[in-house]
Design a protein around this nucleic acid. Structure first.
Lengths: 300, 300
DNA sequence: GTAATGTCTTTTATCGGGAAAAAACATTTG
DNA sequence: CAAATGTTTTTTCCCGATAAAAGACATTAC
């Protein structure tokens, strides 16, 4: 069992959803582009769809025979990549009680616990190390630095530097730039969400990320753009385990975003700076207030 | 052949140099700390030293019998870690002619060329990716983004933000802080180097790195401190293949450092800001001027 | 003749295994 | 009895192998 076929399964499921919309499927290369996989995988999908009677497949002709039924889909948990599985398990451990700073991380133990090979765990830890939460001792174990107050402060310090710079680069973009269209669309989505905040507050995270990534991209600096991965990861996992006050928090944030968007559209650097600072300040407060007091770095 | 014993060989060589200084070696744990290896490795070293007649070893007694001879040392090339070997080979390719942006990177080909397993190459590429020079296509190859003018500009932009911030944090440190002692020591070393710049100009790189790392550490921010790894890597390799004007370049930089150090010691934020900006500006110029014109990003 | 399909080759993702190195445990010695 | 040495266990590092997935080449169809 050397490699799971999650790419195939996930693409198969996504392809099933396409069946509802059309009477026949497009060409193999076209399907590949649509699903983001190679023709090899497309052909595996088509083979199975033919076998299970979903389509009739003869060369260029791929006629849809019936609609997809729930049992046609592969189970959701089989469509996750190994990297995602490891990341989730690891983050659960990290944010769970008892994950104190200074603690050792054991590759073999992690691998056994998750039920995967050591190579995958090693690769995950190397990738994860850029988030600044773990550190490698050469020829030896990894050390957990911990999700501490210090970490949150260091993270937000950089975030604020980068976002202020990106925001001022944003207003300097020419009128023809596509960002203004993107910004308008985001503004509409924000207004819609604001109107139904009582029921849809949990959709804010995704909108938040798209909004901030748009601004960061204006920096045209790969280090700034890449740094948002750190922020996104922290927010994603941290808030999964910290639902307190979520609704109210997001309600405030949506309004701050709208003010921020208005400032950007005004093209007035001073207004942008003020709106950006205000939002970042409350974002920092939210993050800091959610860090448990006991979760402090241990002396070495 | 699953793992080379370079840790042992390197520690053995370093331990040989200790023999000249003493009549007998310290305890095993002490030696371990000194050499930065485990007792297991220390005991392997002692065993070989006993076998080759370098020492008489009986429990706590480790008497030096003779001085180390050149043939006692393991060859230098056997003491490098696999990661170092891969990094060197990769950087040679990267900075060599013909490494255009957009080019694909093939793990298997790299592994075969260097003569190592694919796992090690993969791990190296993952670690290396944080430098922003390569990017992964999921389930597929890596793409070389290239050492372009854009890269240099993005890198220096961040560097300047981080260093200015670190420098202003530096002057705010209390008199009792150990950094002032470190700074004094670095100033002395700079003066010595300035006096003998004609012959020792190639020693500047190492001093440069220590100086800037000291400043960056004052930020007390792991992301800023870690970012210096990117800068150090670029400078290290780039200047290995770009010796033009090296002497004059370093002579200027030493003087700028001395002015910068004086500004830091004055504790005057305005002076520090000016000296820092001046040095960073010329550092940027140096880097930019050494990028070949033809080395531009290809349109996707 | 371009763009699809059919077939074959190469590369990536992942595992298990084994030597090197670290770490833990047991025993001895000053 | 604390700190060393002796012994055993565990973990890290790295390779080779293999299925999944991508990619390249050959052939066919419009």
């Amino acid at each position: 069992m050397s490699k799971s076929n999650n790419v195939y399964k996930d693409a198969f499921n996504r392809c099933l959803r396409l069946l509802d919309e059309t009477k026949s499927l497009p060409s193999e290369p076209e399907l590949g582009t649509l699903l983001g996989v190679s023709r090899t995988t497309v052909r595996s999908i088509l083979s199975r769809m033919e076998e299970t009677g979903l389509i009739a497949w003869n060369k260029r002709d791929k006629t849809v025979l019936r609609a997809a039924r729930p049992e046609d889909f592969f189970p959701e948990e089989e469509t996750d990549s190994l990297a995602e599985i490891i990341e989730r398990s690891f983050m659960r451990r990290l944010l769970a009680e008892g994950a104190e700073a200074g603690m050792q991380i054991n590759e073999l133990e992690l691998a056994r616990e998750i039920g995967v090979g050591t190579t995958s765990v090693r690769e995950f830890l190397i990738r994860f190390s850029r988030f600044g939460l773990i550190e490698k001792r050469r020829n030896s174990h990894w050390v957990l630095k911990g999700f501490t107050r210090a970490f949150a402060l260091e993270l937000t310090e950089i975030r604020e530097m980068f976002e202020l710079r990106s925001a001022s680069a944003f207003v300097a973009l020419p009128d023809e730039s596509a960002v203004w269209v993107d910004l308008d669309r985001l503004e509409v989505e924000h207004r819609q969400l604001a109107g139904e905040i009582a029921t849809r507050f949990n959709e804010f995270s995704e909108l938040d990320e798209r909004f901030h990534r748009l601004i960061h991209r204006a920096s045209h600096n790969r280090f700034i753009v890449d740094f948002y991965d750190v922020i996104a990861m922290i927010f994603h996992y941290h808030y999964q385990w910290n639902k307190a006050e979520e609704r109210q928090r997001n309600e405030v944030a949506v309004q701050e975003h709208l003010a921020y968007i208005a400032a950007l559209k005004s093209r007035d650097p001073a207004k942008v700076d003020a709106a950006c600072r205000k939002h970042l300040k409350s974002a920092r407060q939210t993050l800091l207030s959610s860090i448990p007091e006991g979760r402090q770095a241990q002396p070495a």
